[in-house]
Lab assay of single mutants.
Amino acid sequence: MQIFVKTLTGKTITLEVEPSDTIENVKAKIQDKEGIPPDQQRLIFAGKQLEDGRTLSDYNIQKESTLHLVLR
């Protein structure tokens, strides 16, 4: 499924993921596309910060959901 990741600069990254993918996994995909190390990434969905060990389905993230990427 496709999800979108919006950065603070207003750029939107499109990722191909599975509901069973972990947040860690998603961060690795963002690193592949954008070169941002996962340890600098914070992903936010519905106002919650997403934890590395959880999966997209844990957070009920469905196709075409938009996550927000904050760098630390």
Rank of each mutant, 00 (worst) to 15 (best):
K29M: 15
T12C: 02
Q49M: 08
R72D: 12
R72A: 09
T22Q: 11
Q41E: 02
A28I: 08
G35H: 08
F4K: 09
H68L: 06
L8K: 10
G10S: 09
R72K: 15
N25F: 12
I36Y: 10
D52S: 07
D52V: 15
N60E: 06
V5T: 02
L8E: 15
L67A: 02
L69W: 01
Q31S: 08
E51K: 05
S57H: 12
T9L: 09
Q49K: 06
I13T: 15
L67P: 01
L67Y: 01
K27F: 03
R42L: 15
K29C: 03
E16M: 13
E34S: 07
L43D: 00
M1T: 05
G47Y: 15
E18H: 06
N25G: 05
I36C: 02
I23S: 04
L67G: 01
K11P: 12
D39P: 05
K33S: 13
I44R: 07
Y59G: 01
G10E: 07
P37G: 09
I61H: 00
I3A: 01
E24L: 10
S20G: 09
E16Y: 15
I13L: 11
K48P: 01
K29D: 15
D52K: 05
Q31D: 12
S65R: 03
Q31Y: 10
V5Q: 00
I3Q: 00
F4Q: 14
D32I: 08
Q62A: 14
V5E: 00
L15M: 10
L56I: 14
T66L: 11
P19G: 07
Q40D: 12
S20Q: 15
T55V: 08
R72T: 15
K6T: 15
G47E: 13
K11V: 07
V26A: 04
E18A: 09
T66C: 02
D32Q: 08
R54W: 13
D58W: 04
D52L: 05
N60G: 08
L71V: 11
Q49W: 12
I23D: 00
N25S: 12
K27Y: 05
P38E: 14
T7N: 03
L8Y: 12
S20Y: 15
P19H: 14
E34I: 05
I23N: 01
T66V: 10
E18N: 08
A28C: 02
P37T: 11
Q31P: 02
E34A: 08
A28W: 10
L50D: 00
D58V: 07
Y59C: 02
F4P: 01
T55K: 13
L56T: 03
